[in-house]
Design a protein around this nucleic acid. Structure first.
Lengths: 197, 197
DNA sequence: ACCTGAACACCGTTCAAGT
DNA sequence: ACCTGAACACCGTTCAAGT
């Protein structure tokens, strides 16, 4: 998708400028103040009226999803690197870390993401990336299970929830050491013990 | 602590009434709308001005902690029942569930609780219950470790974080089945495998 | 000593009026 | 077709004035 198009429709020059300014400003504000940042302030700093922001992005989730677009694509692209790793458990671990970083892009992001993951409402634009992530997680889980390295009872959704939890804990300001301990606990939970032959 | 006293000081009758009305109304609003509910609405429905609410409870956390007081005491009291169980792993499991229910008292509660658990600021009244819970969790973990039933690497804080995470996930509207799967994953993570003798 | 409620500075969201 | 910004209904918090 080129910069001047939205769903294939060419846009007037001023509309493109407004959209780009809104996205750029919103990203900066999400980074600095978290997902709950004032949309009024975003509009003002982008040099547009509040109505223009709502016209482009009817909900906060729509704006969030648009700002996350680039990161979503990067995450999907990263799968190619991960798939080249050979060891399916290492691949699963790296994938979980990659998701965690994605969830940690802005403070407070895990909440709307979880809401979207649960949602039946198909109008929430965050639902799509969530479903993609759960499906991808499931594939890594199955690959590791085929190699007998992950418990048969584990499903992709379980580890999606776990990764989202770790990102949420991280967002509350917990030190990296405690996070690592939690990650280790979770890894002990899904790994298949080597049966001593 | 009797109803008409705060830290041992006797209170004027109208002050008692205001305090009680605020707590009662706040609990109802926290239950119905979550921890982010409008304090202005609470004051109005309690029949007092906003200034009176702020005089009694200078921050949202102070009001939350006061409303949680009863539940905090119940949770501590429940330890006596749990301690009578015999099996240290069953005791640990029940304790984790009891904490989880406490964290789930109001929607959005895990966030201020985690913030308080991290905080160095001793003026946050939620910090005290958090530290009590972490210490208690650590005792259950150690007892189960002495019996060789929980991995030596696990600490109380790890399972405090895990229980808080599950409560957070629960608060996002995830179905009970998914929660149970997550709890099982965590339990697999902390349980010591029976070494096949 | 405590309470009241007006006042201030914010916010999300809509929509008539403009270009 | 798109943008503007005033307008409305909210909110947290403070503080002078009352009792």
């Amino acid at each position: 998708m080129s910069a001047g198009e939205v769903r294939g429709r060419k846009l007037r020059a001023d509309v493109q400028r407004n959209r780009a300014a809104l996205l750029e400003t919103a990203q900066r504000h999400f980074l600095q103040y978290g997902v709950g940042t004032s949309l009024e302030a975003v509009a003002k700093e982008a040099g547009v009226g509040p109505g223009t922001l709502y016209r482009h992005f009817p909900t906060r989730e729509a704006l969030l999803a648009a700002v996350l677009q680039t990161r979503s694509e990067e995450l999907v692209a990263r799968q190619a690197d991960i798939d080249r790793l050979g060891d399916p458990v290492v691949a699963l671990e790296q994938w979980l870390r990659a998701m965690e970083e994605y969830f940690s892009a802005f403070s407070g992001l895990p909440d709307p993401l979880m809401a979207a993951a649960r949602a039946q409402e198909p109008d929430n634009p965050l639902t799509i990336p969530c479903h993609i992530l759960i499906t991808a997680t499931d594939q890594y889980v199955r690959a590791a299970q085929r190699a007998g390295r992950v418990r048969a009872s584990v499903r992709g959704n379980d580890l999606f929830l776990a990764a989202c939890s770790v990102a949420w804990i991280k967002g509350t300001g917990t030190e990296e050491e405690s996070l690592d301990r939690l990650r280790t606990l979770i890894a002990s939970g899904y790994r298949q013990q080597d049966s001593p032959a």
